[in-house]
Design a binder for these strands. Structure first.
Lengths: 220, 220
DNA sequence: GACGTAAACGGACTTTACCCCGCTTATATT
DNA sequence: AATATAAGCGGGGTAAAGTCCGTTTACGTC
């Protein structure tokens, strides 16, 4: 009874060798992502290349998608740093509307840079799971919305919808190929239009427009 | 040279036995979905229960996800019927704003009823593929937006974002369990709130609110 | 420093998605 | 009706995901 101080919630820290192996596996996975490519990143191959047993890989990550989730989570830490304590307008200090726009654009950029990993992190039999990025994204958006003095609104739902509007296009609907080339002028469509901005720019501008429309104080 | 009339684009109609087998497989899949459940719907089991070869199943649907996509596509036809020629406000005849709201709510309902199928239809190494629902959803939303006299806006992108705001919560972020029970009062959060509407209602109201905000004519 | 325990490890085993290719059959043509 | 041809069919084969359990190892306790 000398040390019951630690709350029951903490199941105990991860063992040192386990932590070391997790790091080593992540590093190996990243290397394989570069060389043989994501498609060839199999559990067996990863285990062998890391010099560990397959059981270990599964114990650490649970599933193939889990590896990509862990990689994404890892990458996300730097991003979160910027959001929580970086310079404005992404970090604190700017008005909430500006921060919201900046956040969306930064996240679009982040997802675009990591789109291959993000796609493979989807599971299909599972919502995007706890450890991963999304809850934080949702919470951050919710918190900024709360500072925004909208009228009566269900902020939880609105934040969910905006999170989806941010992630969905890149995760669900835009094919990877649609983003890679700078739009090779598919066909002379109706209306000449002002050139062909890269899809990233269009989505990014679209976010700004969406938020601006939503945050326009309703004319009551 | 007597019949080169048919354009090259039509690769030729599906053979009669193939069409019959497709229907039979879909029916069998639906039956299995009800009895052994989606998890036990394996390719082998489906083939055996349908009395066909495994190769046939793959030829017809391409992959496991393809089966669920085909099922969803099938269900979607009735839904599309309502949208294209059903009674207003879902069908034609109502003002575009009302139709847009009604469409979103109908689609939320549709996705909620078919959420298990829809989840399994996700692929992860592929955007939602051609045959499936999404392009039509996107196009319909885009068309209604176009009638809505917003200011200058990138309607393609906006439609994409709204489609994601509609599908995303149910496909990516909300766990299935979060939707099944009528919210057992998780914890006494801040603010008593007006009871606990079912999550479906919240998402549905949220859509209405989102669209209303977006469509509010900007006060220029 | 020895000991007990719970966590971690490894790799054989099982299951399942997906491929392949020789055989069968529908359909168009004459 | 006979034939040619391309589509469809079947089911055995491969590889990769995920499970299990006997063995090993880190860490807290005395």
């Amino acid at each position: 009874m000398t040390e019951p101080l630690v709350s029951i919630g903490a199941p105990r820290a991860e063992r040192a060798d386990a932590a070391r192996n997790r790091q080593h596996l992540l590093a190996t996975a990243r290397a394989m992502l570069a060389d043989p490519g994501a498609a060839a990143l199999t559990m067996d191959a990863l285990a062998e290349r890391a010099g560990l047993g397959k059981g270990t890989v599964f114990r650490r990550f649970g599933s193939r998608a889990g590896i990509f989730q862990a990689l994404l989570d890892d990458d996300e830490h730097a991003f979160q740093e910027q959001v929580l304590s970086g310079p404005p307008p992404l970090g604190p200090g700017a008005p909430p509307l500006d921060r919201l726009i900046a956040y969306g654009q930064a996240r679009i950029d982040f997802l675009l840079r990591n789109r291959e990993i993000a796609r493979h992190a989807l599971d299909g039999s599972q919502p995007i799971p706890a450890g991963s990025s999304s809850p934080l994204s949702r919470l951050h958006i919710r918190s900024l919305l709360a500072q925004l003095d909208l009228g009566p609104a269900d902020l939880d739902v609105l934040a969910l919808q905006l999170t989806a509007a941010l992630d969905g296009p890149l995760l669900l609907y835009l094919s990877t190929e649609a983003l890679d080339p700078p739009a090779p002028a598919p066909a002379p469509g109706p209306g000449p239009g002002p050139g062909h901005p890269a899809p990233l720019d269009r989505v990014s501008r679209g976010w700004q427009d969406l938020i601006t429309r939503i945050a326009t104080p309703n004319p009551s």
